[in-house]
Design a protein around this nucleic acid. Structure first.
Lengths: 339, 339
DNA sequence: AATAAAGTTGCAAACGATTGCAACACAATA
DNA sequence: TATTGTGTTGCAATCGTTTGCAACTTTATT
């Protein structure tokens, strides 16, 4: 059934020349008689010939394909990144293979090995939450396949990465709550094992310290699953336990939404009683009630930059570097934290 | 740089046998001496040999890769479908190449041609909003590449499809509003050129007719862009123009959210003054205020079924069929339409 | 007319893996 | 000893394309 795909040999047979001549004609090789070229090209069009990329990949030892591993596609942020990646890849004649690690270390390793077996020309990875070791990253580099991380980078791997300044973004968000008059600010972290989560906690801490506010470790709550039910349940039980706070900075928007639900249910109003700020600026931030203030992460731009960096590694065949590009974030203030 | 990938020849050279022997040993061919097998397998592990899928694809004329074309990845529904597709593909040893048409006809055609050039073993497509003709679908079939549509299928192409019963789902949603006591129900359509949008309008009409309610064509409003601003502006101007209605059924959730914003701003309360139902049951439906009633579209299941159907076409080499599988939807009633 | 110089085209090898067939060594049988 | 059988391995072709080199035809030059 796959037999209906036209090959260079079919054209050669029909015209009565050798496959090499057809190949050269289609690539406008100067040595080929122009009349022959015309005949061959016409026949190619007639038979809807399309070069077999698989054969070309084998010959060129380059698949013109790059592999992407993201934790979850359904996250708005990661789909935006993918859009940016595809845009640049497409413009440069590359196609993209996307895998989802589903936040699992094992799946991430399998994905990476599968992409390597497919002989992708490069890899763009955002690390899963579950982190065991870096062996698969080392294997990528041992094989000489270019590698760039985005958003979530591991420590101890010599590869470029495109990230945001999580600490300073978190600091800005916390500072905003302080400026607004909040005296006691809670932080909901998302899996504090992750480097980016740690960085956000650091930013939160720094803001409090800089303002001479006291740091209460009990106010830092980890919600590892990042499902709004998690933060909903945790915040509700804290409130019921008598916790008092007038500001809340969450490490992602889902956690913020869950917290808002708990706060509302406890009879508190937002932002009057508690001001809330999220992180990522997901597309639903201005749809919830009240509209949620959040730190905007430039997903599409991150994808573009990551792909550009990878292209530079592929084409310039440069040695491993570990430069870090930090993209600007912006705090989007909405009603959940404004007076 | 790509030179560091171990091949069968490397193993052969190091052991001192021919590549054919290595190949047979790794595939546990009975003719190979078991001592030799052990030595070869050990060496393969040592050199971290991984078969080159590109070479295998060329030889087998099968890439074990399937191509997917969706309108937009950032839509929750489509990312869910992708997850379902990947799940089944993965379990059957296939990898997935994803393209986004961005709702553009030209991009869809380019994506399809690129995937064909990559010699994917099959294609899963959800059609873009912009529809010009079916030539590219015909070309897929002319080449004998299996094709299955999901969610948005074209008319006039003989290929299987996995969809939901848009008309009956829309009818159920509208009926729910009628049962709730709504006297005058508005419908916000999303690009009424699209078959699925037409089907939803049909369902809406049918529900009204069945209940003996009058049909006012002015109550059917097209919002082609599917951005909440579109429905926000249209609904607001209708309200200001004196339009009266106590129910609203939107063809997708974004439109419903935009409408709710307009209604609130006009001083109407939901669901008391106007009951609202959306379509797709996006993940943010229970995060907005009030939580939005919506028709649940089983995205992941749709992806699974589409991939299964495609696998059957690939493996059983069956002739073109055009069976349609309709998946069950369920109206999820939330506060936006409950008393 | 002989030779050189273009102008065209084909052969064969290569990319990495698989596989039918031939070839070899050695043991068992007649 | 000759023959058959069994176990093990290699050769060569194949998938579709590209490309250095050789070979051929035709035209230009002396």
């Amino acid at each position: 059934m796959k037999s209906k795909q036209t090959t260079i040999k079919d054209i050669a047979r029909e015209i009565g020349v050798s496959p090499s001549t057809v190949s050269r004609a289609l690539n406008d090789h100067p040595a080929i008689n122009s009349a022959t070229k015309v005949r061959i090209k016409a026949k190619a069009k007639e038979l809807k010939y399309e070069p077999n990329i698989v054969a070309l990949s084998l010959k060129n030892r380059s698949t013109k394909t790059i592999g992407v591993v993201v934790p979850e596609l359904i996250h708005f942020f990661f789909s935006s990144v993918i859009s940016g990646i595809e845009e640049v890849a497409y413009d440069n004649g590359y196609t993209v293979m996307i895998c989802q690690s589903k936040e699992s270390y094992d799946k991430e390793v399998k994905d990476v090995m599968a992409l390597l077996a497919h002989r992708v020309d490069g890899l763009l990875i955002s690390q899963a939450k579950e982190i065991l070791n870096n062996e698969h990253y080392d294997e990528i580099q041992r094989r000489g396949v270019p590698l760039v991380f985005f958003d979530r980078m591991p420590s101890g791997v010599k590869a470029p990465s495109i990230i945001i300044d999580d600490a300073s973004a978190a600091k800005e968000a916390t500072q905003h709550l302080i400026d607004r008059g909040c005296q006691s600010i809670m932080h909901l972290g998302n899996n504090l094992e992750m480097p980016i989560s740690k960085a956000r906690v650091d930013g939160y801490r720094q803001a409090l310290l800089d303002s001479g506010m006291q740091l209460d470790e009990d106010m830092i709550v980890d919600c590892p699953t990042s499902i709004q039910n998690d933060s909903y349940a945790k915040v509700l039980s804290l409130l019921e336990g008598g916790a008092k706070f007038d500001g809340l900075f969450a490490s992602n928007d889902l956690l913020a939404i869950g917290a808002i639900k708990a706060l509302k249910q406890f009879g508190l109003s937002i932002p009057q009683d508690v001001a809330v700020v999220g992180f990522s600026n997901w597309n639903f931030c201005d749809m919830v009630d009240p509209p949620l203030s959040s730190v905007n992460q430039p997903g599409t731009e991150m994808g573009r930059q990551a792909m550009k960096r990878l292209l530079r590694m592929i084409t310039e065949d440069e040695e491993n570097a570990n430069d870090v590009m930090m993209l600007d974030t912006a705090l989007i203030v909405r009603k959940s934290s404004s007076l």
